[in-house]
Design a protein around this nucleic acid. Structure first.
Length: 310
DNA sequence: TATTGTTTAGGTGCAG
DNA sequence: CTGCACCTAAACAATA
C-alpha cells in the first residue's frame, strides 16, 4: 500500500509518452491550445512524477513539440502578451493513437511538405489574418478544420472501433465526456479563430470544463500495475480515433490534394494551398510522409509526396 | 537572463 | 536485422 507522502502510486511514471501528455494538456484546455508553461503546469498538476527532474522532461517535451508534426504553433495576439506561442494539436492528428488511446501511438504523425508550410508556420495565421474576409463563406469551413467537415460520422463522433470498443485510455475517456461535444465542435481551429478574434458561433466554442476528472484517480490507482485498465465504464465510451479516414482497405494512405513538387524553403503561403478554404482534410492528410526534421534537413525525397506512398 | 524553440545526436525497447 | 516509437542530452538561437 502506498504511504502518504513519498513514493505513493501516483509518483509512478505515467504510462504516457510526452506526446500523449502534451496532447492531453492541449485537449483539456478550453481553447485547445496552451502556452508551453501551461503544458508544464498541466502535467505537473496531474502527474506528481513530473514534479521532479523538470529540466530533463521539460527539455524532452519541448523537443517533442518542435519535432513532431502533430503539434502546431499558434502565435499570440498582440493583446495577449507573454512569452512563447500557443501550442495546439494538428487538426489531423486525431488518429494518432491506437484505439484512440494515449498509451500508444498508432504511428508517427507527419504532414506533407506543403502542409507543413501552411500548418506549422505563420502562413496559416496569415491566412486567417488576411484572407478570411475575402472568403466570407469559408470562415466556418476554416474553423472546422479540427473536425474536418466531410469526416463527420467517423471517429470524432461515432465510434471508430468496429465492435464498439472504446479504449479506456481514449482521450475523452480520460478527460471526460465533454470531449465528445468538443470534438464535434470543430476544434482546435475554432479556438484559433476565436483566439484571433474571429467570430465563432457559440455552439462551436463550447467550453470544456471537465478538468481531467479521472486522471488523478487513475494515477492514484495505478499502483504497481504497469498499465491498468479500468474495468468499466466509468469512462464514457468514445474514441477520437479517426481510423479509416484516410486509409483504404489495403492500408494505403491517400494523398488528398496536389502539392507543389518543389520544396518552398522561402516562407510564405504555398499557392496551391489556399485550398485551405476547402478544408484541412485536403490540406492536412496523414498521407504525409515527411518528418519535420526531414524537411528541415533537406533529407528525403523532394518529389511529389504521392511518390513516397508506395 | 530565463524561457522558449529548434536541431542534432545517441540511446533503448519492441515489432515485423 | 531493420525500422519505428520513444527518451534523453545538449548545443545553440530567439525573445520577452
Amino acid at each position: 500500500m502506498p504511504r502518504p507522502g513519498k513514493n505513493s502510486y501516483s509518483d509512478q511514471k505515467p504510462p504516457y509518452s510526452y506526446i500523449s501528455l502534451t496532447a492531453m494538456a492541449i485537449q483539456n484546455s478550453t481553447e485547445k491550445m496552451l502556452p508551453l508553461s501551461d503544458i508544464y503546469k498541466f502535467i505537473m498538476d496531474r502527474f506528481p512524477y513530473y514534479r521532479e527532474n523538470t529540466q530533463r522532461w521539460q527539455n524532452s517535451l519541448r523537443h517533442n513539440l518542435s519535432f513532431n508534426d502533430c503539434f502546431i504553433k499558434i502565435p499570440r495576439r498582440p493583446d495577449q502578451p507573454g512569452k512563447g506561442s500557443f501550442w495546439a494539436l494538428h487538426p489531423d492528428c486525431g488518429d494518432m493513437f491506437e484505439n484512440g488511446s494515449f498509451l500508444r501511438r498508432r504511428k508517427r504523425f507527419k504532414v506533407l511538405r506543403a502542409e507543413h508550410m501552411a500548418c506549422k508556420s505563420s502562413p496559416m495565421m496569415h491566412y486567417f489574418h488576411h484572407h478570411h474576409h475575402h472568403h466570407p463563406g469559408s470562415k466556418l469551413q476554416a474553423s472546422s478544420m479540427g473536425r474536418l467537415p466531410h469526416f463527420q460520422g467517423y471517429g470524432g463522433i461515432t465510434c471508430a472501433q468496429p465492435g464498439g470498443f472504446k479504449h479506456p485510455f481514449a482521450i475523452e475517456n480520460i478527460i471526460g465526456r465533454d470531449y465528445k461535444g468538443v470534438m464535434a465542435s470543430g476544434l482546435p481551429l475554432t479556438s484559433v479563430m476565436h483566439h484571433l478574434g474571429y467570430p465563432v458561433p457559440p455552439q462551436l466554442s463550447s467550453v470544456v470544463n471537465s478538468m481531467w476528472p479521472h486522471v488523478g484517480m487513475l494515477s492514484e490507482s495505478m499502483g504497481g500495475v504497469p498499465v491498468p485498465v479500468p474495468a468499466s465504464s466509468e469512462y464514457a465510451p468514445f474514441s477520437v480515433s479517426a481510423k479509416g479516414l484516410y486509409h483504404n482497405a489495403s492500408g494505403q494512405t491517400l494523398p488528398a490534394v496536389p502539392v507543389p513538387i518543389k520544396p518552398t524553403p522561402s516562407l510564405g503561403p504555398v499557392p496551391g494551398l489556399t485550398g485551405l478554404q476547402t478544408g484541412p482534410a485536403q490540406l492536412c492528410s496523414p498521407a504525409s510522409v515527411m518528418e519535420k526534421s526531414d524537411l528541415l534537413e533537406g533529407k528525403g525525397n523532394p518529389l511529389h509526396p504521392a511518390l513516397l506512398l508506395s
